[in-house]
Each structure stands twice: as structure tokens, then as C-alpha cells.
Design a binder for these strands. Structure first.
Length: 425
RNA sequence: GGUGGGGUACCCAAGUGGCCAAAGGGAGCAGACUGUAAAUCUGCCGGCUAACGCCUUCGAAGGUUCGAAUCCUUCCCCCACCA
């Protein structure tokens, strides 16, 4: 058998390694291993921040290892206290199930489930934890945990010292995740767990359990928490999370999120969120230094990630919309072309009677572009309001039939980049 | 349970009878400059209004007063120290 590529080295080179539990991991990975990462079904879609763990797993699979994505159908009902300062709201069984389906869809874009020798697998820990009785669990699992160790975990200590405190339920979380690791070790020969840096405690809990119960060594690798150069957690756009599902974050908005990356972040992001070879990234870095206004690195980042998540069709619609919105004029486009370009932009349908003859202030509020009439007034007075890409700074201006593209479409805009489509019927 | 300190707008925080829709900072929105970046500067930032102004807000409910975020009463919640 030919020597395997050193996946840890690849991950390091891309800034995807925060820490490993033992240096021997690299040696272990010279032979095919089974690697798992868990995903919390708190939402029906993964967020951009989750891409770090997903990419790490994809690199493992590309290097010839078997990967398992674990959806926390059971643990999601309990709530992982790691990195949270509040007790979590419990999710219903139904919600967790629905969310698990959404996440499965997201993951399928990155992991190869039909790989000939090592197909990726998705498992749900509800399948083995759901039927556990409390007594059984205490006897078979809880017995192997020491209070001192559990209380010493960072996630527990931080919460016990906080005003919010911690419930017994959340305190028990670490045992469940540890048991997952043991279960996957037993049933799939899984010896490596990958997770965010906040997962360190949960991962080592699993490693301890496997050592105690089976006398075997298991390993963990954590990925760093990605922040932008301002120290803000990665994956928020205008205060909202960036999701992978198209119905939550449109391909256009998704593309734009990456395209707007700062120069100081974009090279790091390319390494982390794309498979672009490091030599190419070095080239883009040089180009960014020489002619930053071309935004070549940002474009490459946006293109690669959007294609990965939304496919070729999603990428094309995002690029087409971006070209029109930020470059070419929208004059000369008819309503159908505009509808196509703005497919991903928020829109509202209004009856003709409410639009024709309406003052722009009223319209901005009515369409939902501004929360209140006053906000609409201020926006217009400060010169940040556009109708069909033309600035309107006068409150008294009204919209007439002649302003509607093909008599049925109006493009509103706030600031440089927030478009809003009004469909008239 | 005792004692002390608190609850002010999205967040932090000043304000102890009228000049308070409430200082300052942060976040946010917009403008200028740029490159859809960063930094900087400017404006806005409870609601309605073209504006004068009107309405609702300072933990909750009552009360005193011409007038209350500010004083009084009761209640709720939080924090610190002690038990």
C-alpha cells in the first residue's frame, strides 16, 4: 500500500488545527482510520462557521480516511454547555428530526457518500442514546466518570461560576458525547474525533471513556475558532448568521458575504474554506498586495465556497446578480431579466393601488425596507435611498406608473448594497 | 434568613423634583473618502409629523406635587458580603 498523505500536515498548512490530544495522532493516521465529527441540530441548516469542521472532515476523506458525520439528535435535546453562558432551550423531538434532515443535505455537498472504498456516513446518536434507560446509563456509563474530572472541565467550571448556573441536565451532556465516541469506536472502529476548540473537554471525555472501558487509545483534533481581523466571530453578516441553506441565506447573499472579506482575512479564509492549492493561494496573496482593488482573492473565495455549497447553478445566479448590482447599470434590463437577477434578493408583492402614486417614504416602509416611517424618512434625508438605482433624496417624490419596469417591478435600495424588490400586481 | 448595593433605551452607563425623549460609550443605519476592504471623518439612532408639536418610555403598581427617571408606599427581580 502506498504511503498515505499526511492529513494533519495538510490541515496545519491550512490553519485548520488548533490542537491535537496526542502527538502520536500523525503516526496513527499513516493507516486508514475512521474519523467522526458531531453536528448539533439546533437549526435546520449549518452555518458558515460550521464549514471549518466540515472542511476538516472533507480533508480527512480526501486523504483516504473514513469519515462519519454524527448528528446530535439525542444530545441536541440536552444542549451542550460548551462555550455557552446560558442554559439552552430544549428542542422537541420533532424539531430535532427536521433539523437533522437539513444538516444531512448540507453535508452531502462536501462529503462523498458514494466513495468506492471509504464512503462517508451519517449517523444520528438518537439511534443508540434514544432507547437507553436511565438506570442502564448510570450503571454502564456513568460509573466510569469521576466527579472531580467532570467538575474540572472548563465548560462546567465557567458555568458554575456564572450567575446563570447550570442544570443537572446540561452537566450530564459530556457523558453523552463521550458515550457517542465509545459507541462509534465499538461499532465502526472510529478512533479519531474532530471538533471545534470548544469541544476539547467533550472529546477528551470520550477518549478517557474508551481507555477505561476498552483499554484502547483514541485521539482528538480540534479546529480553531475563526474570527475576522476585528476579532468578530466568523459567519455573521449584518448581525445575522450566514446559513448554508438557500432558503435562509440566498446564494447571492452567501456569495456576497465571502466577497466582502477584508484583505487581511481573505488569504486565511481561502486556506480554511476552499480546496485551492496553497501555491495558488500564494499567487492570490501576491496579487492582493499588488492590486487590492481587483479583489481577485475575494472573488476566488466567493466563487469556490458558493460553488461548493450551492452548486454551479447557484454560483451563476449569484455572480450574475452581483455583476448587475455592483457593476453594470440595470437600465436596459426588462422585468423578466431583473426578476432573474434579483431572484435571491428579498422581495415583496404589493397591489398596484398601493404603489402607484405613493410617496417614496411610505413605500420604503410599506415594502419593509425600513422598520418605521421615521427610519424611512431619515434614510432618504441622509441620501441613502435609491429607486431603480437612482438616488431619491426628496421625501415628497412619488412613484408613478412610469417608474415601474415593464409596469410591474420596482427596485429599492438602501445604502450601497441592500437591494429590495417590489413586485406589483 | 440578616445586612448592604442595584434594576435607565439594543448593550454598557450617567442622571437624585422642572433646562430630560433622558449625558457618554459601544453596537446599528446612512453619507464622504475608497476597492463591494480596512481605517478615518460626518449625520442619524423611542413613535407619529414637512415642521411647531403631540404621544409612549427610566423593574411593576399605587401615591405626593402645578410638575416625577428623580420623593413616599407596597410588590417583583438581581448582585455582594455574612449566616
Amino acid at each position: 500500500m502506498t504511503a498515505m498523505v499526511n492529513v494533519v500536515e495538510i490541515l496545519r498548512g491550512r490553519g485548520l488545527v488548533e490542537a491535537v490530544t496526542a502527538p502520536e495522532l500523525e503516526g496513527v493516521l499513516t493507516k486508514p482510520a475512521t474519523v467522526y465529527a458531531g453536528f448539533d441540530p439546533t437549526s435546520a441548516s449549518l452555518q458558515a462557521g460550521n464549514l471549518v469542521a466540515v472542511m476538516a472532515q472533507a480533508h480527512f476523506q480526501r486523504a483516504g480516511h473514513s469519515v462519519i458525520a454524527l448528528i446530535g439528535g439525542a444530545t441536541g435535546m440536552i444542549g451542550d454547555p460548551s462555550g455557552k453562558d446560558q442554559e439552552r432551550q430544549l428542542l422537541s423531538v420533532e424539531t430535532v428530526r427536521r433539523n437533522a434532515d437539513g444538516i444531512r443535505e448540507n453535508l452531502s455537498r462536501f462529503l462523498d457518500f458514494s466513495h468506492p472504498s471509504a464512503p462517508a456516513r451519517i449517523v444520528n446518536n438518537y439511534d443508540w442514546l434514544g432507547g437507553f434507560s436511565y438506570l442502564e446509563f448510570l450503571r454502564d456509563v456513568g460509573k466510569h466518570f469521576r466527579m472531580g474530572t467532570m467538575l474540572g472541565r472548563e465548560s462546567v467550571r465557567a458555568r458554575l461560576n456564572s450567575a446563570a448556573g447550570m442544570s443537572y441536565t446540561e452537566f450530564s451532556y459530556q457523558m453523552l458525547q463521550a458515550y457517542d465516541f465509545l459507541h462509534l469506536y465499538d461499532t465502526a472502529g472510529c478512533t479519531v474525533q474532530v471538533g471545534g476548540s470548544d469541544q476539547w473537554g467533550n472529546i477528551t471525555a470520550g477518549i478517557d471513556l474508551i481507555r477505561r472501558q476498552r483499554g484502547a487509545e483514541a485521539y482528538g483534533l480540534t479546529t480553531p475558532l475563526i474570527c475576522d481581523s476585528n476579532g468578530q466571530k466568523f459567519g455573521k453578516s449584518e448581525g445575522n448568521a450566514v446559513y448554508l441553506n438557500a432558503d435562509r441565506t440566498s446564494p447571492y447573499a452567501f456569495y456576497q458575504f465571502f466577497f466582502r472579506s477584508a484583505d487581511t482575512d481573505v488569504i486565511r479564509y481561502l486556506k480554511t474554506f476552499t480546496f485551492a492549492p496553497l501555491e495558488e493561494i500564494a499567487g492570490l496573496e501576491a496579487q492582493t498586495a499588488a492590486e487590492p482593488e481587483k479583489r481577485a482573492a475575494q472573488r476566488r473565495l466567493a466563487v469556490d465556497v458558493t460553488r461548493g455549497v450551492h452548486g454551479e447553478a447557484g454560483l451563476q445566479s449569484a455572480e450574475r446578480a452581483s455583476a448587475v448590482l455592483f457593476g453594470e447599470s440595470m437600465d436596459g434590463l426588462n422585468a423578466d431579466e431583473l426578476l432573474d437577477v434579483f431572484r435571491d434578493v428579498p422581495s415583496i408583492v404589493l397591489p398596484r393601488a398601493q404603489v402607484a402614486g405613493a410617496a417614496v417614504v411610505a413605500l420604503a416602509e410599506l415594502a419593509g425596507l425600513c422598520a418605521t416611517r421615521g427610519a424611512a424618512r431619515r434614510l432618504i434625508e441622509s441620501g441613502g435611498f435609491y429607486v431603480n438605482n437612482r438616488r431619491v433624496a426628496d421625501l415628497a417624490v412619488t412613484v408613478g406608473d412610469g417608474d415601474l419596469v415593464n409596469g410591474r417591478l420596482l427596485v429599492l435600495r438602501s445604502g450601497k448594497k441592500n437591494f429590495y424588490l417590489v413586485k406589483v400586481e
